[in-house]
């Protein structure tokens, strides 16, 4: 392991993280809910009355964030190296697994760890571990 000092952006990472934390804070303090993206999106596939519009409002805000950003500045780069087949496989896997695992990076990683939830700690360690392992296999074993 060596640290990629040219890619490492501690300050913008910290600032962005604080904004994400503020978003989660607003949501729990005003709406009484966990800002977990997979749960909010997945819940739309099980529509119940009174439980749809807030999900749509949240997701609309998330999706419109780049547009709001464009009012002030150019968008930061978004580079997706993976080819289309891999993108589809990964999307399917992320969709089904986050529902089985009751959460993703936001629900378990940010909100769950903030709540000191043992389930979320276990989940976060698990997806970090397989995330590291997958990139190791893809880049260093298969990628050469």
């Amino acid at each position: 392991m060596s640290i990629d000092w040219t890619a490492f952006t501690p300050w913008s990472a910290l600032l962005g993280g604080i904004l994400i934390g503020l978003a989660a804070a607003i949501f729990v303090l005003l709406n009484g809910r966990i800002a977990g993206i997979s749960g909010i999106l997945g819940g739309l596939l099980r529509p119940a009355s009174g439980d749809v519009v807030w999900r749509v409002a949240f997701l609309a805000g998330l999706i419109l964030a780049p547009l709001a950003w464009l009012v002030l500045a150019d968008l930061p780069p978004i580079r997706i190296e993976a080819g289309y087949p891999l993108v589809i496989v990964a999307g399917l896997l992320v969709g089904i697994s986050t529902r089985y695992g009751s959460g993703c990076t936001s629900g378990h990683g940010v909100c769950g760890l903030s709540r000191l939830s043992p389930r979320s700690l276990a989940a976060t360690l698990a997806f970090m571990a397989t995330g590291f392992a997958t990139v190791f296999v893809m880049r260093h074993l298969l990628g050469g």
Binding site: T105, A126, A129
Partner: peptide, 19 residues
């Protein structure tokens, strides 16, 4: 919880996207 999270990490690592 564990199988779901382990699977999610694989999908995350394949492309670099979480939800």
């Amino acid at each position: 919880l564990m199988l779901g999270s382990l699977g999610f990490g694989v999908g995350w690592g394949l492309v670099g996207f979480c939800p």
